[in-house]
């Protein structure tokens, strides 16, 4: 009997991620391209995962797209919101998680799920880059630090600097002022991480925190933000190295459900 394959693609504002499942719901492939909606990134991520799995589009039984660019992705059979997909993906990996904090390239979301993994409440940030991956990008550029090194600098900090959590533009000015007054870069980076965490933690408190808590999305890769978030919430966080793929995983699981439930 021919094997069935199920694909989830999460097209965000800055990255495109794919997850491929087999008929046993096992992850058999993943791809990530650092280009999101409105670019060639989604197509590249899609072609990449097929090529790596030695499959063609015709071999895929069902594809679900999610993320900001989900509507425009014509190869998908269906599309679902990224909140539902993150909930599905995280619940699959961490069945005891009840609160998901998903910080992506340009927005942040907090999702409350029940024991069955169903979304029961959620909140999204407003249209502001503060508290998102974009905020970290801007700050890393000002500090001339590789975004992936923010975590190392944050963990070296002695006394995190105070950075506004309200507005990226104001925060940018604050960082420049801190630099010109001679503040240590590690302290500034830790302050930036606390700023992101503080803003999103306040969103999380609006939904109501129920443990266990998990961080997903690209910003979850940053240990500095994870540490600051854990401190802000006063709770330990679950984290998967595949945090950035949780939306794509959820989409792939929904694709599986479409033909198997």
């Amino acid at each position: 009997m021919k094997e069935s394959y199920f694909l989830g693609i999460d097209i965000g504002s800055t990255t495109s991620k794919c997850i491929l499942l087999n008929s046993q719901r096992e992850i058999i492939g993943s791809s990530l391209v650092s280009a999101g909606t409105g670019t060639t990134g989604p197509q590249k991520a899609y072609e990449d995962i097929l090529e790596k799995a030695n499959l063609t589009a015709g071999d895929i039984s069902f594809t679900v797209a999610t993320g900001y660019g989900r509507i425009m992705f014509t190869e998908a059979n269906d599309e679902m919101s990224e909140l539902s997909c993150h909930a599905k993906g995280v619940h699959h990996i961490f069945p005891d998680v009840h609160t998901i904090i998903d910080i992506g390239g340009q927005d942040a979301k907090v999702i409350s799920i029940n024991d069955a993994g169903k979304v029961i409440n959620f909140v999204m940030n407003d249209k502001c880059a503060a508290g998102t991956g974009r905020f970290l990008d801007v700050m890393a550029t000002i500090l001339q630090i590789n975004i992936n090194d923010l975590e190392i600098h944050a963990r070296e900090a002695v006394r995190p600097a105070k950075i506004s959590s309200t507005c990226t533009v104001f925060a940018e000015s604050e960082v420049i002022s801190q630099l010109s007054s001679g503040e240590n870069v590690n302290n500034i980076v830790a302050g930036i991480c606390e700023s992101v965490a503080g803003r999103v933690a306040s969103l999380a408190k609006r939904v109501g925190i129920k443990e266990e808590i998990c961080m997903s999305g690209g910003v979850a890769k940053n240990g500095g933000v994870r540490d600051a978030m854990s401190k802000s919430l006063g709770a330990k966080l679950q984290y998967s190295p595949k945090a950035q793929y949780m939306g794509a995983l959820g989409a792939a699981l929904f694709a599986y459900d479409k033909l198997n439930i």
Partner: peptide, 9 residues
Amino acid sequence: TALQTFKDM
């Protein structure tokens, strides 16, 4: 996105 998620809920 919010309304689509709400529909799923």
